[in-house]
Design a binder for these strands. Structure first.
Length: 913
RNA sequence: AGACGCGUAGCUCAGGGGUAGAGCGCCACGUUGACAUCGUGGAGGUCGGCGGUUCGAAACCGCCCGCGUCUACCA
């Protein structure tokens, strides 16, 4: 092994070997239990971000864990075509050459996107390889692969034929920049400071005026009614009369509807059925005219007065306010908080807009999907996410699935010249299915499907559905889905609905929902905030200059840019160092506690890089000291028995935590055992055996074998979390095969040895007592000390006598003397339980310091004694608390009292300073 | 307006009816033959507040305060 731990070198070495040897493939062992995960397919042209790194790491841990247990394990990998995002990226690329997609035309443009996919599509999969993801690359799929596209068609056609997909004209969420409809879940509602404009609407043939309040004055051009509450006494006499709509001079009715809140504003509401979802419904109820006043790109159209035509919606807003004011019809303006609908991709303000779109009648699919979760067929982890799921599913609205984009699955529908719709998977199929003559002219629907439509089929379309393949039989339903809460609606719910509908089974049994990775201040990481951390930079390291360059790239506003530069320089004055992927993976695991977002803490990452270093050096030590192991006799020391016993507890703990998705607790158990027990204590306890010529060959051999055996087990236990370093060391310690294909450790009850654990615990307490004296008294660690002991019982005495070597080595002792009741010389004192420890002063101990130290200890003990006495003096406590608890308290009191007495006595015995 | 979550050491977080934990940071000492990416010792918290249940609450319940997220919205 190299002298120093060099993670980057190790990490680049092993992945190609694993992949080439086919270790990522499912074993195909039909007798073994199946374990499968489908990856949430990342955007094919995307880049790996912290969220991917996090989720992929957790998936890989589970996959490697199950694979090592001998399960027939599949991690299905692939990428998503990500309709809007990908189209936007390519359009932006074209724009830099001053080309629009319309210049190219649909076919050429789509070809360009495919080219772009070929060009950049390998990027994210390369990054996944760096992560160590043991996905089965031979089964890699893309949502627009031919067979997955066939599955999409089949699903669409079947749903259409069953009446569960329909086409209709209604209000949709329209993105006037991207020029496409989007679904409800793609709209973000951002709270914004806006205004409430109060407009005066004159009543026809009357002096009266109704005042309506609106946040969007420009929509008044499309008003077709004013509504009041039917019981509102103020307006009773006006119901049925008409308003002369200012600026347009159209006459619109005053109607009554109990949707109106009398308390809000003036109690009069302007109704614009073509541009507001609530107004649309009211329009339906009252058969109101619908006047669309916007062009697809949200300019005022020809249905409005000429003056406003062609104006952008926000310019029109300003102009209309001016015109109302000029006409004396602007009553007042109030500041008002409102939610503005924003498209989650483009960021444009969404318009409710009247268009023809395709919808899924979703309620019939939602019912069974709700039941599946209620019945526990699908389990959310943590469980509270099922509430979020129910809440949405119980109020689910029909799903708009058509998009006016060019990149995506083309909807398999054709129209004849009369606009009649035919659905089948090709024009030929349409003609056959609907028995159309060759003379009937057909043209295909130009819309594509929402990306999430194909994503919803992912768990079974990737496994060959609709064919009844072996993959489906073995791996479907899948075992666990790991994903973020942000796509429960987008993706998880739809997979459950489609899975149940088309396979009759749930797509997965457990859904593990991860928190969001935020920056150290709890802020969402985003390009515009300039606080993004790239997982690869954490692994490879990056200079401050490069990091600043990366974070400010594309930032336009100088004050934002300056802040990003300042923040970055402050947080990373020296850039980011090399940490290695194993450290990053372990960090992800350690932060993966359930049900909360994660503030990414660089300190943790550094700590776990150090952990890798620790393992490296410990392994080096083991190898150096176990070169001459024999098959001969092995005699196990107390320490050997102890560490083997503790190892069993660790195995049990790690398995338990992995089984219940507590990656944080699993990593903690490993960290604590490896560092605090194996390295800090066991390696040190081995030294007096290995380095002492007086120790028998059998004992040395026993310790050597134990050192190796424990390391061997540690590596296998740790491998799912830190695959690279464990593989590298395994090559030295284990067999020549890869650690990937070794068995995951199983607890061996025979090695649990409570006596050894207790005995080592005693030894540790003595050593800690002496070290405490050394530390507090500033006695150099190199200075050997004499130890006087008293008050030990026979059993303890026996243990200590047989293990003096440990004490002498770890506490750096010279003589060990038993007092047997004799008075100790003037000493510093410590207690190890009932045992009194004396370190003779003999000129090296500062009496004043020792006095102070003892007084401090005595103070603590006094408090403890008091506390115990109070408890035990309470009759209801002794009567009602469990006897075991009371007994424990009694023991505690006895021990504290005895300790107090001993230390007080010792304080008295100190020579006066 | 509902729903969910969070508030524990300076920071990032575990824990959970029976004497408050980890990592990082801090202080002191130390190059003892795996490791200074280290070792040893130490300091540091009335577990957001107030009530209640209980022999016992940081933990369970209620209310309040603060923070966050989601859903639905009054134009």
């Amino acid at each position: 092994m190299d002298d120093t731990y060099n993670p980057l070198e190790i990490e680049k070495k092993w992945y190609p070997i694993w992949e080439q040897k086919g270790y990522f493939k499912a074993s195909g062992d039909a007798a073994a239990p199946s374990y499968s995960i489908v990856i949430p397919p990342p955007n094919v042209t995307g880049r790996l971000h912290m969220g991917h790194g996090f989720q992929h790491t957790l998936m890989d841990v589970l996959i490697r864990y199950h694979r090592m247990q001998g399960d027939n394990t599949l991690w299905q990998v692939g990428t998503d075509h990500a309709g809007i995002s990908t189209q936007m990226v390519v359009e932006r690329l074209l724009a830099s050459d001053n080309i629009s997609r319309h210049d190219l035309g649909r076919q050429k443009f789509v070809e360009r996107v495919w080219d772009w996919k070929e060009e950049s599509g390998g990027h994210i999969t390369e990054q996944m390889r760096r992560l160590g993801n043991s996905t089965d690359w031979e089964r890699e799929r893309f949502t627009m692969d031919a067979d997955l596209t066939d599955a999409v068609s089949k699903v669409f056609i079947q749903l259409y034929d069953e009446g569960l997909i329909y086409r209709g004209k209604r209000l949709v969420n329209w993105d006037p920049v991207l020029l496409t409809a989007i679904s409800d879940v793609e709209v973000l509602n951002e709270e914004t400071d806006g205004f409430l404009w109060h407009l005066r609407y004159p009543v026809k043939n009357s002096d009266e005026v109704l005042i309506v309040a609106t946040t969007r004055p420009e929509t008044m051009l499309g008003d077709t009614a004013v509504a009041v509450h039917p019981d509102d006494e103020r307006y009773q006499h006006l119901i049925g009369q008409h308003i002369v709509l200012p600026l347009t001079e159209r006459e619109i009715p005053i109607i009554a509807d109990d949707y109106v809140d009398q308390e809000f504003g003036t109690g009069c509401v302007k109704i614009t059925p073509a541009h507001d979802f609530n107004d649309y419904e009211m329009g339906q109820r009252h058969q109101l005219e619908m006047i669309n006043i916007l062009t697809p790109d949200a300019k005022i159209n020809e249905n409005a007065p000429v003056k406003y035509q062609g104006m952008d919606r926000f310019d029109a807003r300003k102009q209309i306010i001016i015109d109302f004011e000029t006409a004396g019809l602007l009553d007042k303006i109030e500041p008002h908080k409102l939610k503005v609908p924003i498209g989650d991709r483009g960021g444009a303000v969404i318009e409710p807009y009247l268009t023809d779109q395709w919808y899924v009648d979703i309620k019939p699919l939602a019912g069974p999907a709700i039941e599946a979760v209620e019945q526990g067929k699908v389990r959310f982890i943590p469980d509270n996410w099922s509430k979020t799921y129910f809440q949405w599913m119980n109020n689910i609205q029909d799903w708009c699935i058509s998009r006016q984009l060019w990149w995506g699955h083309r909807i398999p529908a054709w129209y004849d010249d009369q606009g009649k719709v035919y659905v089948a998977d090709s024009e030929q199929a349409v003609r056959e299915k609907y028995d159309l003559a060759a003379s009937v002219n057909l043209h295909q629907e130009t819309d594509v499907l929402d990306t999430w439509f194909s994503a919803g089929l992912w768990p079974f379309s990737t496994m060959g559905w609709p064919e009844n393949t072996d993959e489906l039989k073995q791996f479907y339903p899948t075992s666990t889905l790991i994903t973020g809460f942000d796509i429960i609606f987008f993706w998880v719910a739809r997979m459950i609905m489609f899975g149940l509908k088309f396979t009759g089974e749930v797509p997965f049994k457990d859904v593990y929902i991860t928190g969001l990775i935020r920056d150290e201040h709890g802020q969402k990481m985003s390009k515009t905030k300039g606080n993004v951390l790239d997982p690869i930079d954490l692994v490879d390291g990056i200079s401050l200059d490069d990091l600043v360059e990366k974070r400010t790239y594309g930032l336009m506003q100088t004050h934002v840019k300056d802040k990003v530069i300042a923040d970055t320089k402050k947080q990373f004055p020296d850039g980011i160092g090399v940490h290695g992927m194993d450290a990053l993976r372990f960090t992800y695991c350690s932060l993966a506690s359930t049900g909360r977002d994660i503030r990414f803490d660089l300190g943790r990452l550094e700590g776990y890089r150090n952990f890798g270093n620790k393992i490296w050096n410990a392994s080096k030590f083991v190898l150096m000291n176990t070169e001459e192991l024999t098959d001969g006799q092995q005699c196990l020391s107390l320490a050997d028995q102890w560490i083997l016993s503790r190892l069993q507890n660790t195995i049990t703990e790690v398995r338990k935590q992995l089984d219940q998705y507590r990656f944080d607790l699993a990593s903690q158990a490993l960290y604590e055992f490896i560092w605090n027990e194996y390295c800090d204590w066991y390696l040190e306890l081995c030294k007096p055996i290995l380095y002492n010529d007086a120790v028998s060959a059998a004992e040395k051999n026993g310790t050597g074998h134990t050192l190796r055996a424990v390391l061997n087990t540690i590596l296998r236990l740790l491998h799912p979390l830190m695959p690279f370093i464990t593989e590298e060391i395994w090559q030295e310690v284990g067999t020549s095969d890869s650690i990937m294909v070794q068995a995951y450790p199983v607890t061996d009850e025979n090695l649990i040895n409570e006596n050894a654990v207790q005995a080592i615990h005693l030894i540790q307490k003595i050593i800690l007592g002496i070290r405490n004296i050394r530390g507090e008294m500033n006695i150099p660690p190199s200075k050997p000390l004499s130890l006087y002991l008293d008050q030990a019982n026979e059993e303890q005495k026996n243990i200590i006598q047989h293990n003096e070597n440990f004490l002498k080595a770890l506490a750096k002792l010279g003589d060990i003397v038993w007092l047997d009741g004799e008075k100790a010389p003037a000493s510093a004192t410590a207690l190890a339980g009932n045992i009194e420890l004396f370190i003779p002063l003999a000129g090296l101990i500062d009496v004043a310091a020792e006095t102070e130290r003892l007084e401090r200890e005595i103070g603590k003990l006094n408090k403890e004694v008091l506390k115990s006495q109070q408890k035990l003096g309470n009759e209801s406590y002794t009567a009602k608390a469990p006897p075991a608890v009371v007994e424990k308290e009694r023991q505690r009191l006895t021990e504290s009292e005895s300790a107090l007495e001993k230390l007080t006595e010792q304080l008295k015995n100190l020579p006066s300073a």
